[in-house]
Design a protein around this nucleic acid. Sequence first.
DNA 1: ACCCTAATGAGTTTCATTTTCATTTGCTTT
DNA 2: AAAGCAAATGAAAATGAAACTCATTAGGGT
Lengths: 155, 155
Amino acid sequence: MGTNAAGFNNILQTWGYKPTTQRQAVLEVILKNQDKHLSAEEVFAETKKTNPRIGLATVYRTLQLFEKVGVLQHISLDDGCMRYEMADPEQKYEHQHLICEVCSDVIEIREDMAFFAEKVFLQKGFRITTHQVKAFGICKKCSDDLECNHGNDGK
Amino acid sequence: MGTNAAGFNNILQTWGYKPTTQRQAVLEVILKNQDKHLSAEEVFAETKKTNPRIGLATVYRTLQLFEKVGVLQHISLDDGCMRYEMADPEQKYEHQHLICEVCSDVIEIREDMAFFAEKVFLQKGFRITTHQVKAFGICKKCSDDLECNHGNDGK
DNA sequence: ACCCTAATGAGTTTCATTTTCATTTGCTTT
DNA sequence: AAAGCAAATGAAAATGAAACTCATTAGGGT
C-alpha cells in the first residue's frame, strides 16, 4: 500500500471521491517533488505543464482534499503562503523543519518526539494528534561562509 | 531591565526609534494580555479603547517593530492571521503551544528543548536561533466531555 | 446513450497585510 | 520658545493568498 498512483485511487474511492485527471495530475506533481515544500501556486504552475486547462481553484481544492484523506499535510514556513508535503505514513514519528535565515533553505530532519507527546499527555491530559516543529537559524553552509568572510567588511 | 514601560523606552532608543504615544499604548495592551495571543486586529481594537485615533497600519508597523527589537515574537496558530506574544527574555528555553481541535483553546507549556537544538547542531551543523513547537490535539476538558457523551448520538 | 451528481474553471470576493503619500509629531538646533 | 527635519502616523488604496459562486463538464452507474 502507501501513496503511489495505484493505491491512490483506492484512497479516494474509499472516501467517496472520484480519481479525476486533475487529481491525478496534481498527485504526480506532488510525487515528483517530495523533497520540496510546494505552495498552491507552485503546484498550479507545475501541474499546468502537463494539464494546461487546470484552474487554480481546483488546485486549492485538491490540496485540501489530499490533506483530508491523509495524503498531504500543510506547513507554514512563515513566507506568506501555505505549503504542502507528503503526510507521514506512520503517525508515530513526525519530522521537523530547519529554515536557514540566510539562504532560506529548508532542511528536514526526523527527530523522535514521541516522548514529548507522552510527557504532555501525562502532565496536561492533552492528547496530541499532530505537531509541527519549526526551527530558524543558520545552516552549516552559510555558517561556514560567514566564517570565511571573517574580518572582511563585505566590500 | 526587562520589558516594562520604563525599560521599554530605553529599548526603543537603543535602536534609534521614538517612544511615541501609539507605541506606548500598544505596549500597554500587550502587557495587559500576556496570557493571550492577540492578532493585529485584536491589538488594534483594544488599543483604540484608550487611543481612538490610532490607525490599523500603525498597529501592524508597531507589532513588527516590537518583534524586531525583541519585545514580541509572532506565532501562527493556523487560524488565518498572525498572532503575537511576549518574546522569551531568555533565549535558552522556549515555550510550546497546544491547540485543542475541539474548543480551539491554546495552552502554553514550557518543555526544555535545549537538547533538541544541541542534537541538531551536532548532527547537521545547523545553529538554531528560534524555534516553534505547535501541537494539535484534544485538551483534557474536551476529552472528558467526549467521554461523558459516550453512547449518545448527540441529539 | 442517458442521468445525476460530483468536480471543474473562470471570474469574483474576501480579508489579512502592506504600501503610498500627505500630514503630524517628537527631537534637536537655534 | 520658534524653526527645521526626519521619523512616525493615519486614511485610503493596493496587494496577494485563499475561498467562494455558478454555469459548464465529466465520471460512473443504469
